[in-house]
Amino acid sequence: MLALESVSKIYRVGVLGLGKLTAVSEVSFEIGEKEIVALIGESGSGKSTIGKMILRLIPPTSGTIRFEGKDIFSLKGKAVKEYYRKVQGVFQDPFASYNPIFKADRIFTMIREEFFPEISRPQWERKLEEALRAVGLNPPDVLGKYPHQLSGGQLQRFLIARALLLDIRLLVADEIISMLDASTRVDVLNLLAELRDRGLSILFITHDLSLGHYISDRSVVLYKGRIVEMGSTERIYSRPLHPYTEMLMASVPRIDQKWTHGEIRVERNAVGPSLGCVYYGRCPIAQEICARRVPPLIEVESGHQVACHMRT
């Protein structure tokens, strides 16, 4: 349904824009029908940049993003609106997604004005109520309030309800639960999974492996803008191949198993912009070739790809 083809994003930084900062580097992956894909990465991995590019909020420096076969950045005028009718996003900070000077339900009014100008008021109200109930909200409790009068969880559900008003096929969920409390977090996760079961595809961007594991069908692991490993979630979690994924799995805090106490590992000064593997500077099993050549993504078993010279 959605395909990224060798997408890169390079920002110009520093004096006169002479410096370059590679946020995303030659990323290719696909999101299929009725599928939750977890995009996993730490800060600086470029995961949010990918989400914003899919939502057409920032253009890629090179590469193409296709939705149902069409390059989304070649869309013009009406076609853009049609794209947003099918692809929507929800962001990390629920409070930042609302203009604080307006009531929170204004995001629905905006959808009505732009997408359903012909619909009658009672009809619209029914539709809105349906969408709010679908995300587990009681309309009278939440309508007509300002963002600061609602909780983070409610605001986040509002945004999902907003997307449901449209005929969406793909939802980009960028760290949408990292600012929620544990007790409400699971409910939002379950909601996403239910939506998937009803036919939606979801790109679930997260830094939290346990959350990714809980709901996703496939996982894509990013490090410094590159895909280091991807495949079915079950495979990756039961048998991580890339040393970075291994390290992530070993350091995620769990409540069923304690950390194995190795030496205390901290980042050392990263090796400067190298030609080789992005993980070279921290990799425990790196060899000389890793500093010279970027490892390509190679399929090691059906649907499981790894970018590592040592493990392929």
Partner: peptide
């Protein structure tokens, strides 16, 4: 609270957590 925590190993398809 503890029952609502997603742990590595728990999957929605197999076990539904509740908030």
């Amino acid at each position: 609270l503890i029952a609502s925590l997603p742990q590595v190993g728990v999957r929605y398809r197999e076990e539904r957590l509740r908030g």
